[in-house]
Nucleic acid binder design. Structure first.
Lengths: 340, 340
DNA sequence: GGTGGCTCGGCAATCGATTTCCGAGAGTGG
DNA sequence: CCACTCTCGGAAATCGATTGCCGAGCCACC
């Protein structure tokens, strides 16, 4: 386990190349044109000494860290992990770097992570807030010190940008599908959602209620376990068939596994519909009908917002329309013969 | 969208409190005892001005950033995401902060991320290497500049620590289970693994071969799609029953979904066994038998390694024994009546 | 040949915090 | 009352890089 014998600084390189630190800086960053042979001499000197730039020093001087921070509620939720991965790949194309921190599903930790990113002088901060209400403080703080974007979940009155999908529209697509393709009268429609502590949960729930007034609604959290519990609850109450609309794929997967474990068939007895449409969806058998969030485009819009040219006329709130992806978990009713 | 009106520095606070910057630093960090009332005066001055420390400045001076970097191959793989989440929660208990970057499954990006973390002066670096061979360069570089730990996947000759689970032992548990509880003679056993480009893939494969010499082996990548393809290949070749040992849960889930989609029953026709045992496992129906990696303990050991007291006699290589978790995807054969 | 413009290297200030060292003042013991 | 110790605040150096400014040298043009 060899360890740094000595720290090589820009002055060491300067000494070796027989020039001043200023010249080394300019040669390595190309911040000012110079004769090619001198530049080359500096580069080899740096190479030979194994010089590596200290980004702390640079950032301190430049007042710019070139870092985008991302705070997610929980990496164990595949949807958030996928957002992180996508954003990471998009940011990759710029000269910014994305660093991710998890809030461990706690508002306090979230706040600490935001603070810490700010203290580290990130240029921009993307936050998927834990809680519609309690995350507000942290976001306001962030907005004062860096370009801040709320992703996926909206918290009002923070002054930050928002990028997310049009949840109401997405849910209306589901409603259309259920009404057109599924025999709605014979089949009770139940919404299995999450307590509206985030705008996504909120909006999906509201739109469902608007579309299916009077329909049954069960609310829990965004995880597999809740889906399983909800399935148990419905089955224990004697339900034997129907359409279950989940507020997220991860809940739908929980529903699916429990329905099947207890001997019910999907889609014959129960139709199941999800929301999000990232990677994991493919895990399910049968594959889920779901609302695919345009993760790619969301990432690109974020990058634009924090981009080099701070578009002053930029929208505060960017909503991107999701698309419905049909899967065998809710096939079109045979007799209607429709295909969308 | 309010933005920093002015940058508050330690000198501003000093001026306001009528003391020197040195005193402010000492008051806020408590690095030297001082009269309580003075400390209080400084604190209120800082509060009133909305002062926040610049960690770049501090780190530059202290030669210590208090950051642990984590480079994962791909956050879309739930196992890696889960490792990140667990490590994050464990590190949370110390005064170190974990920052995560994804390599987007590319050796080049991985190298860039490592470099960038080093340039940012991380104190320690945890890497789940993409490739058993090609990741070596980056890891050597890392070892020269920070305490470096390879996680889950081992690359030889890097000088870095290694923390991971004992894959051979884990696979031998699976073998024992298959031999004891499953009628091995009547049921062909097939390994559905990944090309040995990582030590984990390697070790699991080797141990399987040692335990079941001559058994069929299919190799692909660590993702759902490969599991599905493998299932197709086996079924297309006329297989109708058997025990499928997957090198990872994520592959097992792919197998499961395709087997079921094509009308085969698990566990009646096919037994399926996974490896990893993190969150997503529960998604499956039926629930997977799997080898649970002790993610929690792995995280703790990592923190110890980079801990304040650099244990010089520390093991280079820490292997933690995983445990077998039985699930209905491979129930004990009825007639043997055994329970483990 | 003088002068203006240009190129390009170096000096030194700067970013923001920490920390070493110094010295003033208070307290104590002889 | 002197000498010694102790406490505690401040001046200034320091971490590593970037960059505004200056000036030397060169060229070209009149």
């Amino acid at each position: 386990m060899a360890r740094r014998t000595h720290r090589v600084t820009i002055s060491d390189v300067a000494a070796r190349a027989g020039v001043s630190p200023a010249t080394v800086s300019r040669a390595l960053t190309g911040s000012r044109p110079m004769s090619p042979e001198l530049a080359e001499r500096v580069r080899t000197a740096a190479q030979e000494l194994g010089y590596r730039v200290n980004l702390l020093g640079r950032a301190l001087r430049q007042q710019r860290s070139s870092v985008m921070g991302l705070v997610v509620p929980d990496l164990d939720n595949p949807f958030f992990a996928s957002l992180a991965e996508h954003l990471s790949r998009v940011v990759e194309t710029s000269d910014i770097e994305l660093l991710v921190a998890s809030a461990g599903d706690s508002v306090e930790t979230e706040r600490r992570m935001i603070s810490s990113f700010l203290d580290r002088q990130v240029d921009s901060l993307v936050v998927i807030p834990c809680d519609e209400v309690q995350s507000q403080g942290g976001l306001e703080e962030a907005t004062d010190h860096a370009v801040t974007v709320q992703l996926d979940r909206r918290v009002l009155e923070t002054g930050a940008y928002y990028v997310g999908c049009d949840n109401r529209y997405g849910m209306s697509l589901v409603a259309g599908h259920v009404r057109d393709d599924v025999d709605a009268e014979a089949q009770p429609v139940v919404f299995v959602g999450a307590e509206p502590r985030s705008s996504s949960a909120h909006e999906r729930l509201e739109e469902f209620r608007r579309q299916f007034p009077g329909s049954r609604v069960l609310l829990g959290t965004f995880d597999v376990r809740w889906g399983q519990q909800a399935a148990d609850r419905l089955l224990d109450a004697g339900m034997t068939r129907g359409t279950l609309v989940a507020a997220a794929d991860i809940i739908a997967l929980g529903l699916l596994s429990r329905l099947q474990a207890r001997g019910h068939r999907v889609p014959d007895d129960f139709r199941v519909i999800g929301f999000d449409g990232v990677g994991v969806t493919r895990l399910a058998h049968p594959e889920l009908t779901t609302v695919r969030q345009p993760v790619e485009e969301m990432s690109r819009r974020i990058l634009e917002l924090v981009g080099d040219l701070p578009v002053d006329g930029a929208e505060q709130e960017i909503r991107i329309r999701p698309t419905l992806v049909l899967g065998p978990s809710s096939p079109p009713a045979a007799r209607s013969g429709r295909r969308s």
